[in-house]
Design a binder for these strands. Structure first.
Lengths: 132, 132
DNA sequence: TTAACTGTATTAATAAAATTAACACAGTAT
DNA sequence: ATACTGTGTTAATTTTATTAATACAGTTAA
């Protein structure tokens, strides 16, 4: 489900955050779908539960998941509460595009990337309201 | 020229790398233009020269600058040697787009971002979110 | 040639951050 | 009742980042 790269300089909890977020935004983990429990994921990845909890906690703070004590953690379907995150991503994308252009990527290629099949991901239609 | 954010969890040398890279890929620092010296930038930012050196060293490894002992460090003009970096950025962009879509950004808005003036980076008005 | 720059390198000490460890508490489900 | 679940706390440990103090060699201009 998630793979860790210990040669990566980035902290483990960051890698976990990115991995889970990717699964969520691509739709691999659907709305209100249950994520692995803190302890099970810790066991699976052979790391400390506290590290997982940190990742989950921050993901919840960013609006990507919500947690119900005693039940579990679930993927959020409606993340629109987070406008600053969108601003941040917007700027980051702008910078990435600038760098890609610098590296010789043409406008046509970038256009093609944009037209790519959105990986079955974002639920274009409505979404279900969960218990929140 | 470069600003540091000590509240940011990211290491200083990473912030410096990103800042300089951004200046280079946007053309703010032109081809073969001289970068501030290791010591002067360290003094300017009130940090240790070794930290600057680390940033410069890694940027050189990634092909964005080249250094001449005794003379200085300069921006690279022809970075095409680095194909893996492009691959990495490509994938990163793909993930960013997926997340932006998940956050409700429409294809039209993304298209607009792509059409933006590549150089000055004129915001061309906010990308205010519509009906949600 | 001297003086003041430049990048580079090395080793050690210190500071900061991440990770682990060992628990405890309370809610949920079977 | 038992075994899950998320959450919280405190401390120890490990890893990483940063600083410190030098040194060496090439460059540049006075």
């Amino acid at each position: 489900m998630i793979s860790l790269n210990y040669r990566d300089s980035r902290p483990i909890y960051e890698q976990i955050k990115d991995g889970l977020r990717k699964l969520i935004v691509t739709g691999a983990i659907g709305t209100d779908e249950k994520l692995p429990s803190v302890r099970s994921l810790a066991t699976q990845l052979s790391i400390n539960p506290n590290t997982i909890q940190r990742a989950y906690n921050e993901l919840e703070g960013e609006g990507y998941i919500y947690s119900v004590p005693g039940k579990g953690s679930f993927a959020t379907g409606d993340p629109d509460a987070d406008a600053s995150r969108r601003e941040e991503l917007w700027e980051k994308t702008r910078e990435l595009l600038a760098e890609l252009r610098y590296l010789g990527v043409s406008q046509e290629e970038l256009m093609a990337l944009l037209q790519e099949e959105p990986s079955g991901g974002a639920p274009a239609g409505g979404h279900k309201e969960g218990t929140r």
